[in-house]
Design a protein around this nucleic acid. Structure first.
Lengths: 200, 200
DNA sequence: CTGATGAGGATACAGATGTACCACGAAGGA
DNA sequence: TCCTTCGTGGTACATCTGTATCCTCATCAG
């Protein structure tokens, strides 16, 4: 049984090509032939490693969700566990905003997938990504901050977190649409954090 | 010169059909033939009233922007000019959230156009819609509220407004994606408004 | 009444797309 | 050595898409 090709490596290569197209020319421009051309291989190879177009697209969202998740996790891990809650929020929310070209490209592709999933249940993004886990973790962090007295007791930790995540999400959209640059977005986030952590 | 057809009416009819498709099956599903079928006319008629596909799509965003704008303006006008700033924010932000099937459909179509415009400059949504006007108006309202003493003087009206609009935008996304229902979204908005208008 | 013009029907065409199929070389097991 | 199987090239096919073309018919001006 000859088996000289590394399937995982091949698939990663093709998926990366797919995401490159999605983030620059949109999901509409993604075809088997375009992916093949972008990856520098023949159409047949794309067919071989992803039998369907569906499985190709699916590989795209999966990789994307992994990347976004990794970005947050890496940053969260880098700051350890003993740091002030305010710093945790700053770092985590900052990891969501598209601060460099790579994360901008990923957020563009993510937005395309998200929009497609709203009307085409085939490409549904939900389930593949777990915003709930992030929400729960941050709620815990904020609740601890309340107990520690860093944050006034009158607030509702869950709603505050939901609100911060939705705000960040909205800011991502406006940054992608070039209505705002990423520094402005960071300023808005930090303003909100200031008011949350120092009110009273 | 016979001229028995009302061109404007015809175009509105076709545009409505286009938006119905866009909001249910996505922009991908919009083709000249599909629009014709949805509107119950022949392909030739769509060609006749919109020479290009580009002009058809353009008519879609234009109508959509007008609808969203109208929704906010109508609600804003209904509350007059003498009402408390808190109420103004409540009504205006509430008008953005997809509270009924119609506004949900429009927001779905809008999101599709927005996502398409991020990678395809042809469909750019910017310019056709003026979030700046809304932002400036609300900033003025909030600044007056500060002077009137309804809101503590320490806040930055512009950033507060930007933050509220981005929050609302983020909530719209999560409502469209069914991660949250619209009542939850309204609760989050009102929570933020409570904290803005009553904090000390 | 006649001819020009607006409105629309029918169809054709070129390009792109997903998918299927056939063939061929290379490599390892018998 | 032979032969099976993996990886890949090439190509064909049916379908959908935007667009163009030709034709018909009703209507109104003269």
């Amino acid at each position: 049984m000859p088996r000289r090709a590394d399937h995982d490596e091949r698939r990663r290569h093709l998926t990366a090509a797919l995401l490159r197209i999605a983030s620059t020319r949109g999901l509409q421009a993604v075809s088997m032939r375009e992916v093949a051309a972008e990856a520098g291989v023949s159409l047949r190879v794309v067919q071989y490693y992803f039998t369907d177009k569906r499985s190709l697209m699916l590989s795209g969202v999966t990789e994307l969700a992994a990347r976004l998740d990794r970005r947050v996790r890496e940053r969260a891990a880098a700051i350890g566990t003993g740091l002030p809650p305010r710093t945790v929020f700053d770092v985590v929310l900052g990891a969501i905003l598209p601060t460099d070209d790579d994360s901008r490209a990923d957020q563009l592709a993510w937005t395309a997938y998200y929009a497609a999933g709203l009307t085409d249940p085939t490409e549904a993004v939900d389930g593949r990504y777990a915003p709930d886990a992030l929400e729960r973790w941050l709620t815990g962090v904020l609740a601890s901050a309340v107990e520690a007295g860093d944050v006034p007791a009158g607030i509702d930790p869950r709603i505050e977190v939901v609100s911060l995540l939705a705000l960040t999400n909205g800011l991502v959209s406006s940054v992608l649409g070039r209505q705002r640059d990423v520094d402005d977005a960071l300023r808005v986030v930090r303003y909100r954090l200031d008011r949350l952590f120092t009110a009273t």
